[in-house]
């Protein structure tokens, strides 16, 4: 197994708000080997974007990060803003945002915005070198050069999403986060973009984190799935295991909430209830209020994340029990 490009050690993130502290990410530890593609899934509000923004060090002022995020041997948490903007952000780690339209200025041409990014992060490049780079990255996401002269509103959803990926790739980062990069696109555009991502991964040995609540996307482009619920990692599993034999009750509920293209049509179970109030999260297992297997023991202590098989971690006290039953 290759060395980890990124390692999260006991990362917790809180937002200070008028209502108290929102515990958005709680004690997350995760290894991301070079060349890996980690899928991050979980309901809206479970902390996926918060974690991604923390890696980019782009969290808002009211956020507090504790723990360590070791990237290529250095702790991102303690880097200063001036260190980050010189040679880290966009150069070493880049991100394609959930709200892609919001990430680009509506009043400037795409090409101008991309050039600005290059001028800031790679000031040594000459004008022809910058132009060459723009041309190369557009080619790699199969966009015509005319996109450079377009304003964001002139592009279709699919072209805009590709432009955002191009922006992410602009400084050749070894690590890229996709936050719902294909959500709300139609299936044909989505397939095209996911294929691009696969190709880029192979070509540049990119390491990626792919955030999506679409398990189809996760299935298509990741090798490991990490399930986040109310800020806690509930399960980390090789992709095949996650889909064929998920162990955590929350993972099982997520998978059985998705309608299928084939097979018997049964009523979707859904997951009754909703995420707990993160200013006052429940004691013990955060999923307990919604869990069909919850016992009193689950409310007492937070279950540890246990390795049940190589590379397969589960945070649930009920696991041994159900294995005996099965």
């Amino acid at each position: 197994m290759s060395e980890s490009l990124l390692e999260l050690r006991n990362v917790s993130i809180r937002y200070r708000t008028g209502r108290g502290h929102v515990s958005a990410v709680e004690d997350v530890s995760l290894q991301v080997p070079t060349g890996a593609s980690i899928g991050l899934v979980g309901e809206s509000g479970s902390g996926k974007s918060t974690l991604a923004l923390a890696l980019m060090r782009l969290l808002p002022q009211n956020a507090e990060v504790t723990g360590e995020m070791i990237f290529a041997g250095e702790n991102l948490v303690t880097k200063t803003e001036s260190q980050l903007s010189k040679g880290w952000r966009w150069r070493k780690l880049a991100m394609v945002f959930q709200k892609s339209l919001a990430a680009m200025s509506p009043v400037h041409r795409i090409g101008q915005q991309m050039e600005d990014v290059l001028t800031i992060h790679e000031p040594h490049l000459t004008k022809p070198e910058r132009e060459q780079r723009l041309h190369d990255v557009l080619t790699s996401v199969r966009l015509p050069n005319r996109v450079l002269r377009a304003y964001p509103f002139e592009l279709s959803g699919g072209m805009m999403q590709r432009s955002m990926i191009a922006l992410g790739l602009l400084c050749n980062p070894p690590f890229l986060i996709f936050d719902e990069a294909t959500t709300a696109l139609d299936v044909i555009t989505q397939t095209q973009i996911l294929k691009e991502i696969e190709r880029l991964k192979a070509e540049y040995n990119l390491t990626t984190i792919v955030i999506s609540h679409d398990v189809g996307v996760i299935n298509a482009v990741t090798d490991t799935v990490a399930v986040l619920y109310a800020g806690q990692l509930m399960e980390v599993a090789p992709r095949e295991t996650f889909f064929s034999n998920p162990q955590h009750p929350y993972s099982q509920a997520l998978i059985s909430s998705v309608p299928r293209l084939r097979g018997e049509k049964t009523r979707l179970a859904g997951i009754p209830g909703s995420l707990p109030d993160l200013t006052n999260p429940p004691q013990g297992c955060r999923f307990a209020p919604r869990c069909p297997h919850a016992t009193e023991g689950c409310l007492a202590v937070t279950p540890p994340l246990v390795e049940v098989a190589p590379g397969h971690l589960v945070r649930c006290t009920d696991i041994p029990l159900r294995e005996v039953v099965a």
Binding site: V187, I188, Q190, T191, G216, N219, I255, R260, L261, G263
Partner: peptide, 15 residues
């Protein structure tokens, strides 16, 4: 085209 580009949501193969 639509059906064949739809991603399978589970461990089943693509159509």
């Amino acid at each position: 085209a639509l059906l064949s580009n739809t991603l399978p949501a589970g461990d089943e193969d693509r159509i």
